[in-house]
Amino acid sequence: MISTQLSLPGLKMKNPIMPASGCFGFGKEFSEFYDLSLLGAIIIKAATGKTRYGNPTPRVAETSSGMLNAIGLQNPGVDRIIQEELPFLSEFDTPVIANVAGSTVEEYVEVAEKLSRVTHVQALELNISCPNVKEGGVQFGTDPELAAEVTGQVKKVSKLPVYVKLSPNVTDIVAMAKAVEKAGADGLSMINTLTGMRLDLNSKQPIIANQTGGLSGPAIKPIAIRMIYQVYQEVDIPIIGMGGIETTDDVIEYLLAGASAVAIGSANFKNPFICKEIIEELPAAIERYGFTTIQDTIGGAHR
C-alpha cells in the first residue's frame, strides 16, 4: 500500500488529512467517534486573547451545495484553551495546529506567543481571514501590507512554524500569498470562507443574525482549487488546501492543484467519520490515478 506519510514545517504527518479549524472544536466530541491518532494533524478552533461569546443565533444556514456560518470566533480565550482544552489533545499521537485570531496586531502577537510555548502544539495557523467579526480578522486578510505586518510580528515571537490562512475575499490572491511569504510565513492555508448572505422569504430578512456569514462546502471548491493552482506557481512555501472536500477525489484534486495537505471542514457535520473514511480510502485513490507516492501527486497539475 502507498505510504501517505509526509513532512511539512513543524509537522510529521501520517497522512495529509486534518479537520479544519472551527469544524472540530478542540477534538473531544469527535474523539467519541474514532481515534484522533489516525488523523494527519488537528487544527483546533481559533483562540483570541480574551473570552469571546461570538455572534447571536441563528449562526448557520444551509445553501445550495454549501452552508453559511457566522459563529464569530466564540472561544474561552487563549489562557483557558491552554489550561482546559489542549491537555486532552496531548493524549493523541497527532500534531496539533493552533489557530490564532485577534482584533489587533498586539492581540495576534500575544496569542501566538502563548500558544507557541505549549509543548504539544507543533504549528500555528494565523487566522487573518475570519469574515464574521467586526474588528480585525478579515481586514488583515484583504490588505497585503497589513497581512505582511501581522505575519512579520507573529513570526518574531513564535517558536513554531506559522501557516497563514488566506481569505478568498480578495481580487489578487497571489499578491496576498507573496506578501505573507516575504514576511516570513512558513506555509499557507487556503482558503477561508467567502462572505455570503441568505434571506428568509417569509421574514424578508437575513437568516443569519449577523446578516452575513462565511460560505463553505462544495460550492467553494472550484474557487479554492483555482486560487491554490495560481499561488502554487508563485510561492515556495507549502499549502494546506481546504474548501468543500467531501471525497478522496476532492483530496486528489487539491493535491494536483498544489496543496501538500488538506483540511476537511463542513463535511464533518454531514458525516462525523469523514476524515477517518478518507484517510482509509486515500492510498488506493492515489494509486488509481497512476501515482506511486503522495509527493508525486502534489502539484501534479503543473507538470
Partner: peptide, 9 residues
C-alpha cells in the same frame, strides 16, 4: 450545525 457539540452554532 454539527449536532455533536463541536461547531458552536
Amino acid at each position: 450545525g454539527c449536532g455533536v457539540g463541536a461547531c458552536f452554532a
